[in-house]
Amino acid sequence: MISTSAQPVIRMEGVSKFFGSFQALKDVSLNVNSGDRVVVCGPSGSGKSTLIRCINRLEKHESGSIIVDGVTLSDSRESLNAIRAKVGMVFQQFNLFPHLTVLENLTLGPVRARNTGKTEAAELAMRYLERVRIPEQAEKYPRQLSGGQQQRVAIARSLCMEPQIMLFDEPTSALDPEMINEVLEVMAELAASGMTMICVTHEMGFARRVADKMVFMDHGEIVEMSPPEKFFSTPESQRCQDFLQKILHH
């Protein structure tokens, strides 16, 4: 898969989102091309998570438009199903199903939502477990795994739905430091395979290595958007400079 499409696969225009009277997103516009690896960063409460949660309709935006691969997000069931089929998501807290084995976690979606046969779904699941390098854990329950392993299972679970776009919502923030790398490795491999990815993360080493577009958000706005070389060396806005100084200084 090589990104040649000129048409953006995600097109957000003038998107606003409120929680009560608090405005989490202010008139945000963002285009993502097929195969793009976008890293979104910014201080907590800046709207990063809300931004990506709007893309798969975990949050409803109040104004503006979001078009994902030709589908305009709305309340209609068709658009919701279409979006969910195209977009996979990995959460900060993994959100694995604790009462199901790893294999069952992976096959539930394909079997119930895509009518994949059980054997076929299991084969698919094993293929992705191998890709995240934990095929030997297939029969275990999530709580028997380490945090890093759980997050890799969550990534595999998303991939089993064969999405076009993967969203990562602070995938390493809940992990012990020694487990962060194993998850980032898997994500880097995924990026190398040409997957369109939007990652909310504070892992700037990963961003530098993998991203081809950096987005900095603050107070619900996209303050800066540039390729990583420029973003890390010569950030334009003062807010972005301050932020980078804080997180790169430890």
Binding site: R84, N95, F97, L108, R112, R157
Partner: peptide, 27 residues
């Protein structure tokens, strides 16, 4: 049951009845 369970079910395209039957109610 944690809200994240619904979100995970949503992200793997489960319908509401399936989410209840396979994810929420068993827990």
């Amino acid at each position: 049951i944690n809200k994240g369970q619904y979100e995970a079910a949503h992200s793997v395209s489960l319908s509401y009845p399936d989410t209840m039957r396979f994810v929420i109610l068993p827990q």
